[in-house]
Design a protein around this nucleic acid. Structure first.
Length: 420
RNA sequence: GCGGGUAUAGCUCAGCUGGUAGAGCGUCAGAUUGUGGCUCUGAAUGUCGUGGGUUCGAGCCCCACUACUCGCCCCA
């Protein structure tokens, strides 16, 4: 009786060898890239106390209210994002004692219980950066340019950097009252979602995609008009800093992000090539979060990049991934004694960092040669009774079929460069 | 949570107005006894997503369920 297959959970992915190779490559470049900007890696637990996300991200956000994987009587939650955990670790480990601005980067998996879609999964990966301790517009500029440069590094084109400033909760207070007043006048033409948001999170109505709502918003009060001088000045300074370092941007006064911790600068990098889930990078300032999580008031800014979406863009830009290095020597064996000799030998060769393999299926010499060819082995060496008797074998260069005689006593010391 | 689409071999897919399965690729084996790529020959693998219905007869028509997928929402 054949047993039923157990399949992976919805919205998760198996990363097969080819995919893993690409990811490893990307990660290596990212690590190198971040170190040029003096960012250090941080890793945090896969799950945290649920309270961290409730307090950090906000109880009424979609992610916290309905998309979290919580367990153990709701005490713990698989991390749906990385900023709150990084700040938690920053506080718990007193990283404020590090010299200068604390610059951290991460590459990790996140979990959100959403309906899967193109470029959206329940388990997904992000890399991102957080710069903690500076309120300078210059660090905002560096952060945004860092995000843009990474995309450029992989040849990604057709991207748009959208930027806005949303001030602090206090600055937003008066605006939100006025916005509510205004929207109540158009209450009947609002969508159901906007109607409920009007009470819980009116700010989010700003980035509606409904055409008639966009029309209504055109004559609505503008958030920017309600921000204080300092916030506006920070934004103006940032814009000229971006021009100064040649970063193209587009101001989008309706760019509102879905997590409550954002203050002041927000930005998003989008690409039309991603379809519906068009944001590849999102980030901004969160000057109140650290205090909210029990630290002393500390300004900070960060961004996150969705790796699955990032890789879609890399693929579309015809990026040239390196080719995986093939096996150097494939040992074709014939007979019990030869197989034993070969196993002994390849283990010694592997100790010397040489990539080699042999047949474990007792197949014909022809079949073994075929495999060597398929896996792109650079060389083959046939070992059978004759070779063991004469103590000599031939090493075959697969690209042109050329053969060289080799002494079996010397085989474990072979220098493959001699046969290039 | 709400909509649309799809489900046939390991993969990509054919399959006529209903008459109980096919191709290409891949895998494996062979084309004189111990040598790859090209070519040729052959083989294996399917309860046609699951369950029900209509019919003499269903891969095809109808219903339900499930999975996958794409949108809405939200986010990266």
């Amino acid at each position: 009786m054949k047993k039923e297959l157990i399949r992976k959970p919805t919205g998760t992915n198996d990363l097969l060898p080819d995919e893993c190779f690409k990811r490893r490559h990307i990660e290596n470049i990212l690590v190198n890239f971040f170190s040029c900007y003096n960012y250090k890696e941080i890793r945090t637990p896969t799950f945290e106390k649920t309270e961290l996300f409730k307090r950090g991200i906000g109880d009424y956000t979609d992610v916290v209210s309905k998309e979290m994987y919580s367990f153990h009587n709701n005490e713990f939650t698989l991390k749906p994002e990385m900023t709150a955990p990084v700040i938690r670790a920053y506080l718990e480990n007193n990283l404020d004692n590090l010299p200068g601005v604390v610059k951290l980067f991460y590459i990790a998996n996140m979990y959100r219980h959403e309906r899967p879609q193109a470029g959206r999964f329940r388990e997904f990966s992000q890399f991102g950066a957080e710069a903690i301790g500076s309120d300078s517009f210059l660090i905002d500029a560096e952060m945004i340019s860092l995000a843009v440069k990474i995309l450029q590094k992989f040849g990604i084109k057709n991207i748009k950097t959208k930027i806005n400033t949303i001030g602090t909760p206090e600055e937003r207070k008066e605006f939100l009252q006025e916005l509510k007043k205004y929207l109540l006048k158009h209450f009947d033409s609002l969508t159901e979602i906007s109607k409920t948001r009007l009470e819980k999170n009116p700010l989010r109505i700003l980035d509606t995609k409904e055409k008639h709502e966009i029309e209504i918003l055109k004559s609505a009060p503008k958030l920017y008009d309600y921000l204080n001088k300092k916030t506006k000045q920070h934004f103006e300074n940032l814009l000229s800093a971006l021009s100064n370092i040649n970063i193209q941007y587009e101001i989008d006064y309706n760019l509102v992000r879905g997590f409550d911790y954002y203050t002041s600068t927000t930005f998003e990098i989008v690409s039309e090539e991603l379809g519906s889930q068009n944001a590849v990078i999102g980030g901004g300032r969160y000057d109140n979060l650290i205090e909210e999580l029990g630290g002393k008031p500390t300004p900070a800014i960060g961004f996150a990049c969705g790796i699955e979406r990032f890789m879609v863009l890399i693929e579309k830009s015809n990026y040239n991934y390196p080719i995986e290095k093939p096996i150097s020597i494939y040992f074709v064996t014939y007979g019990e004694k030869a197989k034993e000799y070969t196993l002994r030998t390849i283990i010694k060769l592997r100790d010397r960092n040489l990539m080699c393999d042999t047949d474990f299926l007792n197949r014909s010499i022809k079949a073994q040669m075929k495999e060597a060819n398929k896996i792109n082995a650079e060389y083959t060496i046939v070992i059978g009774e004759d070779e063991l008797n004469t103590n000599k074998a031939t090493i075959k260069r697969m690209k042109d079929g050329k053969e060289f005689v080799i002494d079996l006593n010397q085989l474990e010391y072979i220098n493959i460069e001699d046969y290039k």
